[in-house]
């Protein structure tokens, strides 16, 4: 059914803890949507349909947290070679991104609060294009630091960004 893409999948998976991160994020979003509904339903004695949407929100949130992170973990991959940074991400819409090392301008590492809690980090590589950034999310902190160091070293060695 599915045509296997001849674009080779990148070599590495992200850290397994990334599943926890995606799960917590999904539940967080569900909570943000569900809480106001719950408050309104309890305090104001809202209409019956509000209970229905509340239940639907909880079911979708829990369902997402149960299923999607596993799928994401299986899809998300990354690879850094001497020539390029290469990532695959997305669930409904898959996206492969390639940024040649010679065109990389900046390398950023970030840790969100949830990521810090789980010991994770993201590395974002930008090029001269606003559409160019390539992000590798859900790496172990040490791995991210090492990767950023290595990328910074290689990119400094190659001048020119084709702007």
């Amino acid at each position: 059914m599915q045509s296997t893409l001849p674009l080779r999948p990148p070599a590495h998976r992200v850290d397994p803890r990334a599943r926890q991160w995606w799960r917590l994020r999904g539940l967080g979003v569900a909570a943000v949507v569900a809480l106001p509904q719950l408050v309104v339903a309890l305090v104001l004695g809202g209409p019956l349909w509000l209970w229905a949407t509340l239940i639907a929100t909880v079911v979708v949130g829990v369902g997402y947290a149960a299923v999607v992170p596993e799928i994401l973990f299986r899809i998300h991959r990354w690879e850094v070679t001497d020539e390029a940074v290469y990532t695959l991400s997305g669930w409904l819409v898959r996206e492969w991104r390639i940024a040649p090392i010679s065109r990389v301008q900046t390398v950023d590492t970030e840790h969100g609060p949830l990521q810090q809690l789980l010991g994770l980090a993201s590395v974002t590589v930008t090029t001269a294009s606003a559409r160019g950034p390539v992000a590798i999310r859900g790496l172990a902190t040490a791995e991210a630091r090492e990767l950023a160091r290595q990328l910074t070293e290689t990119t400094q060695a190659t001048p020119g960004d084709a702007t």
Partner: peptide, 25 residues
């Protein structure tokens, strides 16, 4: 050309095609 993005939605996956975007400054 300073990078590439390849995207494939669910429908595109079924149709066996992708959208290729050449990234430039």
């Amino acid at each position: 050309i300073i990078g590439w993005r390849v995207r494939q939605s669910l429908f595109q996956r079924r149709a066996g095609v992708v959208t290729l975007e050449a990234v430039t400054a």
